[in-house]
Nucleic acid binder design. Structure first.
Lengths: 235, 235
DNA sequence: AAGTGGTCTAGACCACGCA
DNA sequence: GCGTGGTCTAGACCACTTG
C-alpha cells in the first residue's frame, strides 16, 4: 500500500475500504465491483493481497464471486451465526462451576428406526446406548441421550462411561469427525422434567448432533437443556 | 507438489494429509507439529501453500498456532456449528412455499428497560416497535417482535412496514451490520399461541438478535418459531 | 537473540463459464 | 475465445514470543 496503515494488515485495510464503500452505497447490493487487477492498481498493492481480502469477504457472505463474471456485492446477505459448542465439562467449568456427571443408563441394543437410519446400520444391528445427566455445581445442566455405532468404534463397548463421559472419550479417540447440528425446542417429558428439575412440558433447548468420520457414522446424540439455557453465537 | 493430485488444490491436499496424521495419531492432540518450512520441504511446495493450509485449519479450530512457539494440534477441539439465518422471505420461498406477512402492531414508544439498555438509549427515549406474523403458504411461520433505534435510523419511522418487512428494509438500508445472536426455548404465551396456532405453553424456538453498525445499536429482534421448527448448522 | 508464524510481492499458469 | 477468479511460487521483510 502507498501508506502503511497503522492498524492491521494491508488485506484488512482493503476489506475495511470495501465494506465502507458498500455501506455508503458507492457499491450498492448486487453491483459489480472492479476486478482484482483494477483494485490492486488502485490500492497500490499486489493482486494476491486483493485476492485474499475479497476471498474472505466472499466466505463471509458479503461478496459473490464467479469466474469470468466478476465480483458482486451480495444482494441477499445471509446472517450467519457461529456457535461454539464445547465439551460439556468445559461449558460448565468455564463459567466457574463444578462439573459432575451421572451415567443413568447404558445398554447395547437395537436402536429405534430413526436412529438406526441415521447411523446407517442394518436392521437388527445393536448399538451402544447411553444416557447421562451432566451437572453444574450439583444442579442439572444437560441431559445427554447418545447412540454410538459399534461397527465404527467397537472399542466403545468396553469404555467405563461412568468414569469418562462418552463425549470426552469420543473427542479423544475419534478426533476431527464432521458433524451435523440441529437446534430446536422440545417439551420436557415426565422423565426429563424430573432429571432437569423443571415441570413436565417445560420448554427445553434441544441440540441434536450426528458425527461422521469420513462417510462412516460414529454417533448421534440428543442434548436437552433446562429452561433459560441459551446458546450464544459469535459474529 | 511432486505429483499433481487430481482432486482440488495443493493446499487442500496438504490439509487432508495433516488431518489424516491427526486422525491416525501420528500427531496426537497437543503435539507440536513441524514448522512451515519443514512441511514445505516435505510436501515439495512453497511455504505460502503450507501457510494457507495451516491458517485455515487454525481458523477451524483444529490447530493452534503461536509465533516462535510453533503449531500444535488443538487439545480441546471445540465443536463449531455455522448457522445460516437468511431473511424470512428466503427461508420460506427456498422451501417452495408462498411467503406472506402481516403487520400486527406498530408504535413509537419507550421500550422496556431490557430493550432500552440493549439499544443504548437514554431513559424515556422512544423507539420504533413493530410486531409481525410471517406466513408460509398462509400458515404461521414466525412471530417477529422488533425494536428499532430511531436515533440510528430515523428514516425507519416513515417506512410502510405493512408493505416491506422491517427485516428486508434494514438489510437493504443498513447493510453489513454486526450482530449477536442467541438461541433458546420459550413457552408460548396465550397471544403467541394464538398467532402461531399452537397450544399455550408449547415449546417455541426463540432467536434473539441485536445488530450494530460499528458501535451504534440499530435494532433488536425476537423471533419465535412454532413447535417442530429446526435450525440446522453447517459443518 | 533467534526462530516461528504473518504478511506481502511480482510473476505465472490454470480452469471455469460467459459471450 | 477470452477474461475473470483461483492457485502457486520464490523470495522477502516483519512481528511476536519465548528460551
Amino acid at each position: 500500500m502507498a501508506r502503511r496503515l497503522p492498524q492491521g494488515a494491508a488485506y484488512q485495510a482493503v476489506q475495511r475500504e470495501i465494506l465502507a464503500r458498500i455501506r455508503d452505497k458507492t457499491w450498492p447490493p448486487g453491483a459489480l465491483i472492479p476486478g482484482e487487477i483494477d483494485l490492486a492498481a488502485e490500492f497500490g498493492c499486489a493482486r494476491a493481497t486483493i485476492s485474499r481480502a475479497m476471498r474472505e469477504l466472499a466466505e463471509a457472505g458479503v461478496l459473490e464471486r464467479k469466474r469470468r463474471a466478476g465480483t458482486r456485492v451480495a444482494a441477499n446477505p445471509v446472517r450467519r451465526a457461529m456457535l461454539d459448542i464445547p465439551m460439556v465439562r468445559q461449558q460448565v467449568t468455564d463459567t466457574g462451576r463444578a462439573y459432575g456427571h451421572d451415567l443413568l443408563f447404558r445398554a447395547v441394543e437395537p436402536p429405534p428406526e430413526a436412529i438406526r437410519a441415521r447411523l446407517g446400520l442394518r436392521p437388527g444391528t445393536a448399538a451402544l446406548h447411553a444416557r447421562s445427566l451432566h451437572r453444574a455445581d450439583g444442579r442439572p445442566f444437560q441431559v445427554e441421550d447418545r447412540w454410538i455405532n459399534l461397527d465404527a468404534v467397537p472399542e466403545a463397548v468396553s469404555v467405563d462411561l461412568a468414569a469418562i463421559s462418552a463425549n470426552e472419550w469420543l473427542v479423544r479417540e475419534v478426533p476431527l469427525s464432521t458433524a451435523e447440528t440441529m437446534l430446536s425446542a422440545a417439551a420436557a417429558t415426565e422423565v426429563e422434567a424430573a432429571l432437569l428439575g423443571c415441570p413436565p412440558g417445560a420448554p427445553l433447548l434441544e441440540i441434536e448432533r450426528t458425527t461422521w468420520l469420513g462417510d462412516l457414522p460414529i454417533t448421534t446424540v440428543r442434548l436437552l437443556h433446562p429452561p433459560g439455557f441459551r446458546v450464544v453465537g459469535r459474529v
